[in-house]
Amino acid sequence: MKKEDTVKLISAEGFEFVIDKKAAMVSHTIRNMLTSPGGFAETQLGEVTFPEISTPILEKVCQYFYWSLQYASGMETEFHIEPEITLELMMAANYLHT
């Protein structure tokens, strides 16, 4: 696990989630930010701030990234979503193209 292979996602409240780049790339929006040549400052820093995504939602999104990688590798578990966060989570997923 190398620092260069991780990205830091920062929530609206300033909470930080350090995840593998590979996991973050599940999101097309983040993938574009991290891979577009010279475009985003995020590419160099390896930090992406989401002022519109609250901490519990961003954590759930990160858990989803990892679940998605596990599922793709053949581990068929269920991804549990609490009903009370469904709407907010869907809005975040829409924004992140996840």
Binding site: E13, G14, F15, E16, V18, I19, Q63, Y66, Q70, S73
Partner: peptide, 18 residues
């Protein structure tokens, strides 16, 4: 990837594959 854990301290969470 077999599993991951969430390592937390203060306002930071590290997702660690293990």
């Amino acid at each position: 990837m077999a599993m991951y854990i969430r390592v937390k301290r203060n306002k930071t969470t590290y997702f660690v594959q293990c």
